[in-house]
Design a protein around this nucleic acid. Structure first.
Lengths: 121, 121
DNA sequence: CAAACGTATACCCATATGGGAATGTGTCAA
DNA sequence: TTGACACATTCCCATATGGGTATACGTTTG
């Protein structure tokens, strides 16, 4: 069965580092394929293929400009990812609260006995 | 080269639907492998394998309980995903603003002629 | 029209994936 | 100790992936 097709959803499309690079590059504005190949240091066919995946999940839009093709980001499909991940924000915040509490206790204990506390790193 | 190893980062780990299901199930609290196999309707080895991936990227922690193993979520690695996706929040908000503008115009045009506007849905 | 340019596709291939089935390992019960 | 139980690991395999290279397609230029 292998992994679910990467063209299925934004989760998979974005799991590929190169595709994230492409989106990051496009975040600055429209770019042609040649621009992307240059910035990514990747061959043109590979870039086109990644762009195809991104297009199929709706993460980028294309516009014809003569013999060039200008791509632009469409962040909308990322909403699903964002929404899902956001659910776990609470969980890691709890973790950090715990760490903060421990640090707090340590700091108090230290300041209680000494004036010099271990603040460095 | 195939795709980057799924055990590499949270992005890849979470790209797999089953693993997201596992995390969602664990979001309610600690669960044993058997609980997960039951909820996911997936065979035990597969669940264990997914858990391994999740463990390797730090998305879950394990605790021994007799002959069982209790897993719990650790959302921290999702921070990176959250942070990356959040960058694009602006982009889709812009999109929605555009849609909102259009809707606004339509609404105004409609209210100009009629009293009943399409507010439903 | 032909040549050059910018992209998209097709094809080949090494590799990772995820499910299925069998087996290994550690723990509790009799 | 033996057997049942819970889980992890291993092996097998069909398939998807992503890069490399060659090539097809559409557009602009001469």
């Amino acid at each position: 069965m292998a992994r679910a097709a990467t063209t299925t959803d934004a989760f998979n499309a974005v799991a590929e580092p190169r595709r994230r690079e492409i989106l990051d590059a496009l975040a600055g504005g429209e770019l042609a394929v040649s621009d992307l190949t240059e910035r990514l240091g990747l061959a043109q066919p590979q870039v086109s293929k990644h762009l195809r995946v991104l297009r199929e999940v709706g993460l980028v839009d294309v516009r014809d400009d003569g013999r060039r093709r200008l791509y632009r980001v469409n962040g909308v499909p990322l909403r699903a990812v964002h929404a899902w991940v956001a659910q776990y924000e609470r969980l890691w915040n709890e973790r950090f609260d715990l760490v903060a509490d421990v640090l707090d206790e340590l700091t108090q204990a230290a300041t209680a006995g000494e004036t010099e506390t271990t603040e460095g790193d």
